[in-house]
Every structure is written in C-alpha cells, then in structure tokens.
C-alpha cells in the first residue's frame, strides 16, 4: 500500500471506473437499438478488463480482454447487424407494465441484498490463498491461478473443456443436414478491402507471438492456456473474416483431431495419475511442471480451434470431397 495521495488518486480512479462501468451497463440496457447496446457491451468488457487489473486479477483481465470484449463483442456485433431487419418487430413485443414493474422490483431487491452483503463487515475475509501458496513449490508453478486451474481444481477445467466442445457441437447441430461436415459460413469474396487485408496480414504474426508468449508466461505470471488460446483464436477469426483463409470443413479429420487433442491429453494424463501418482489428475512429484506445461500447450491449440469455430457459426456450405 502506498502513501495517502496515491491511495486517494487510486480510489478516485476506482470510483470513476465503477461509475463508468455502471453507466455503460445502463446504456446497454436502455439503448435504442440493439447495435448501440452491443457496442455498449464491447466497451463494458473493455472497462471490466481495467477493473480486473485494479482488483489485482490480471489473469482475469487478460481473459476478459480477449474474450469478454474481443471475441464475444465480434459475435454480438455481427448478430446485431444480421438481425436488424427483425428488430422493430421483436422490440414491439414489450411486456406489460405489471411484469416490467415486478421485474424491476425483483431486480432491485436482488441488487439491494447483494449490496447489503458487500457492506456488511466480514472480517477477516476467508481465503484459500495461503493453502494455494503452500503447494506451489511442489508443482514448481509460479502463477497460483494456473496452479488452481490445472492442479487443485483441474477437474473443473477438464469438464469445462467438454462444455466448450459440446457448445461447438451444439452450434454445428443447427446446420441443415446437407451442409453437415462442410465449412462454416459463406466463402468470402476475394477481398477488395485493402485495409482489412493488410491488417489480416500484419496482425496475425504478431498475435501468434503474443499468444504463445501469454501461454508460456502463464507458468510464472498472469497468462496461460485459455488466454493464449483466445488470442490465437482471435487472429484466426481475423484471417477468416478478411477472406485470406477460408474456414475449414467441420468434418475434416484434422480439424476434429485438433478439437479433441487438448482435452484428450488432459484426460489421459489425468487417468495416468491412477497408476503413477495418487489418483485421478494427480501429477507425479517432480514431473508436475512439465506435465502441466505439456497439457497447457495442447489445450491452447484445442481452445484456439474451438473458439475460432464457435465464432464462425454452423456449417453453411456443402462439403467438398
């Protein structure tokens, strides 16, 4: 903690940031058009990334910056543009005043209840930080968040990868039968957009370096598989949007293997724990770090492919054989 002035400056910044986040959220709810609401949401994600830094959660800030604002924003903006023709009609179906009032009261009650809990003194705040810190040397991992994600609570991370895969299959399942196995979306016309093509040529090499760096640094500092994978995915999406590379066929053998290789390796290492360590997802002593890093590398690959395809939508073309 620092001197009085710094604390004050920080606090003013925090107060302003909190107010800004709220203002943007209110804007996103009351905005006149869906598009304005979505752009509001993009800034909301961006501001949240700042908040996460203020809360000393840089790992989360990275995730929020890549996903919350970046990829989610792109998906929502594209959807808002597509849905514009239907907007007026569905916006007209506003629920009646009683329902709106009831919802407002309910939401206000929930918010008030939470605010009360936030204000209630609960000293000392419980924490698993010390417990997490104790075992870091065993794992030889410097970043406690990575340790939580890949060791202490590894089963959550594993199941969450299955969630991602099922979400992707769910997205694909919405394709017409004849397109099954085909590539997502329409083939983009050869780009005349010089600026976009230039961006899509210049950015990905840098992005790949950054993504790999974020993955690699995750063992000792904020970063890791998910953040790195999200950045790689974003670069891939950019290349696809710009029309430099077409999206791959969803039924392709290589795509399918890339999708499952991360979770599969994770699972295999986990099962090996039964034999070589004490139980599922246990790492043998002194091999913990290399194993965790190996898992992270393949996970990054799978995450990048899954996220990229999730954002690309269901197959929209017949499969070429």
């Amino acid at each position: 903690m620092s001197t009085g002035f710094a604390l004050d400056a920080g606090l003013v910044l925090d107060a302003g940031l909190a107010a800004l986040v709220l203002a943007v959220a209110v804007g996103a709810i009351v905005a006149g058009t869906a598009f304005a609401a979505v752009v509001g949401f993009v800034t909301y994600g961006l501001l949240l990334a700042l908040v996460w830094v203020r809360l000393a959660a840089v790992d989360v800030a990275l995730t929020e910056a890549a996903i919350g604002s970046g990829v989610t924003g792109a998906v929502l903006i594209a959807a808002a543009a597509r849905l514009r023709p239907a907007e007026a009609r569905s916006a007209a179906e506003r629920p009646g005043v009683p329902l709106r009032l009831a919802a407002a009261v309910l939401s206000a009650l929930v918010a008030a209840g939470l605010a009360m809990l936030v204000l209630l003194p609960s000293a000392p705040a419980p924490s698993l930080g010390p417990a997490a810190a104790v075992h870091l040397p065993e794992l030889a991992i410097g970043n406690p968040v990575t340790a939580v994600l890949l060791a202490y609570r590894a089963i959550d991370t594993l199941l969450e990868k299955i969630v991602l895969l099922l979400a992707l299959l769910g997205v694909w399942s919405l394709a017409p039968d004849r397109f099954w196995g085909g590539a997502p979306g329409q083939p983009h016309a050869a780009q005349q957009d010089g600026a976009l093509a230039l961006l899509a040529r210049l950015l990905p090499p840098v992005g790949i370096v950054v993504g790999v760096y974020i993955l690699w640094v995750g063992a000792v500092a904020p970063g890791g598989a998910f953040q790195g994978g999200a950045i790689l995915a974003a670069m891939w999406i950019l290349v696809m949007i710009a029309g430099l590379r077409d999206a791959p066929a969803t039924g392709g053998r290589r795509v399918r293997l890339l999708l499952v290789v991360g979770p599969a390796v994770f699972l295999a290492v986990g099962l090996a724990g039964f034999v070589v360590a004490d139980g599922f997802l246990a790492y043998p002593a002194s091999y913990a770090k290399p194993l965790i890093i190996a898992i992270e590398v393949v996970l990054t690959l799978s995450i990048a492919v899954i996220l990229g395809l999730l954002a690309s939508g269901p197959p929209g073309r017949e499969r070429q054989r």
Binding site: A66, A74, M235
Partner: peptide, 17 residues
C-alpha cells in the same frame, strides 16, 4: 500484457461491423 491483448483486438468490433 492486458494492454497488449486489447491492442491486438482493438479493431475487432469494427471489422465485425
């Protein structure tokens, strides 16, 4: 690093638009 990520994705919304 967070700033780096934001900078990488800064054009995303507009490109999608």
């Amino acid at each position: 690093d967070a700033a780096l990520t934001l900078a990488l994705l800064a054009a995303f919304a507009s490109v999608a638009f």
